[in-house]
Design a protein around this nucleic acid. Structure first.
Lengths: 295, 295
DNA sequence: AACCCGTTCTTCATTTTTGTAGAACAGCAC
DNA sequence: GTGCTGTTCTACAAAAATGAAGAACGGGTT
């Protein structure tokens, strides 16, 4: 009547005790305590109404009934293994989701990902370009590249890419026309462009408002690209990442980095994603090459 | 790497949610609460690293990955079912173990069991004749026939067979030689045989020692059969079950039952054994017929 | 004989799982 | 619209499973 044996995992315990010959040895393999193993066998026996093992001071000896059940238990184990394999397979075909603020999806970065893809044909990627910082712990993405103004969740796996350094830049023609300030005390009379939006911490914008008069700020953008374009076309001076525009000849740095704006540039990986072998492989491949961009 | 999904039962939950389309409906089938079902799916998803269901206010909709896994999960389920069937099969070939004090294994009782066996060829029996009362709760036997001087464990299933009544008996030739006492106040001058052993409550022996002088007790036996034989051969008077010797012409009852010795005669079944269908069938068949002996 | 080793069992504190109750939500019927 | 139904979540209390520690046991070895 009562068909119920509720806990299918008990079959694994059964098999382990059968194979090891004792609950103690089985507990080692199963990584649970010996009393637990003994108790699981007890409930399996109660549920089946069978005595599966004879208890002795030398271990659990399987009864004839247990022997009859072993092949069936092994069949279950095999099915479960198959299920697990399939799940693993499916997991590894899930794309690796990388999130970053759009400015960080540089051409060189994509190139590195492509290099990885070339040798790992079966790994797919998904790029989540979002202003808001996605929540890796909640599974919104697998990997994030971001500037960490606040300490990230300690559970996240963290690789430091660089210390992002920032300074004030102008275009060559702005420099020719108005000259460039020589220090942060020399900003009077200049024009500035800024980046500002209310769904994101406006660290740079706030720095500017603290150092220049409001009417010196002539343009405000909600996209970094647009602000960069504005700087490039000589509309005004703006704050930018030193390394990022280092090779761009149209940007001229006014003075050395602004130390108080320096911030760690991190690669963060959700622990869940990090359990996937292909994610670990990718991190190992990607992190040093990506960091090299900012060297 | 971490292959571990520890809880095989989660696959059953997975299947149920898939089939029912919602955790609530699945919880009904599985007889667990809805939050539990949702939580089990959560851990399965974390363990596999897959999103198995899209959550909505209308239920859990399986993802393509879940669909791929369903057949494998069904294979597991089928294996488990097979295992359960085999276990049930094995259980039902286990003998039904009946314990009673030897005197209760009367010829008529065996006959009733045989009648049952005749129509239930596949049910085996084991008779455990033991002086000590075996512990049904501990699984030492499935069914006990016994006199319940103390209340039995309330968890045991209990059928009342009769109230066992007792009186003093002598043989015909003893009666001819010495006469028989007419009441419990008329025991002086008679000889008695008794049954006594230290591993069992000696209710009858104690009654005797309270009502007759020690030197009137001429023989003491550790087996009931022997005491009965002694009564039958006229060695002395002895206490016996009224119904049991009613048809035995060599026993002559001295007076009506001794009321203070009356005791319930019970059939006790361990709840564990009672879950076995063949045990229930046997109880249903056996109890009324066995009770009829003592009617 | 004495000791060690691998074993089972027992007990109790801790951790984990489960259930209960209720909020919130969306479709549907009236 | 309003109420109904079936659903998911969240919080917290209750119940169950687990682990740690140690007693007891028995066979093998020194």
């Amino acid at each position: 009547m009562k068909n119920g044996f509720r806990n299918w995992s008990d079959i694994r315990v059964f098999l382990s005790v059968f194979r090891e010959g004792s609950t103690l040895a089985a507990s080692g393999k199963l990584k649970v305590s010996q009393p637990t193993v003994a108790r699981r066998i007890d409930v399996l026996e109660r549920e089946t109404g069978l005595t599966l093992f004879e208890r002795g001071t030398h271990g659990f000896k399987p009864t004839p009934e247990a022997l009859r059940l072993v092949p069936l238990a092994e069949a279950i184990e095999a099915s479960v293994l198959e299920f697990a394999d399939c799940a693993k397979e499916l997991t590894s075909t899930q794309p690796i989701r990388i999130t970053a603020y759009s400015a960080n999806f540089s051409a060189r970065m994509i190139e590195i990902v492509n290099e990885f893809s070339a040798v790992n044909q079966d790994v797919a990627f998904e790029f989540l370009s979002s202003v808001r910082a996605l929540d890796l712990m909640a599974g919104e993405a697998d990997i994030a590249l971001r500037l960490a103004r606040t300490d990230p969740d300690p559970d996240l796996i963290c690789r430091k890419i660089s210390t992002a350094r920032w300074s004030l830049f102008g275009s060559r023609n702005y420099a020719d026309k108005f000259g460039l300030p020589g220090s942060t005390n020399d900003l009077a009379g200049h024009q500035f462009v800024t980046f500002q939006r209310d769904d994101v911490p406006n660290v740079f914008h706030e720095w500017l408002t603290n150092h220049v008069e409001p009417d010196q700020i002539v343009m405000s953008f909600t996209e970094l690209e647009l602000m960069h374009a504005a700087i490039r076309s000589g509309q005004g001076l703006g704050i930018s990442n030193v390394k990022l525009v280092e090779t761009d000849m149209s940007f001229v740095r006014c003075f050395d980095e602004i130390p108080e704006l320096a911030v760690p540039h991190l690669m963060l990986i959700s622990p869940e994603a990090y359990r996937r072998p292909e994610v670990r492989a990718f991190v190992k491949f990607f992190a040093p090459r990506y960091a090299a961009i900012y060297k």
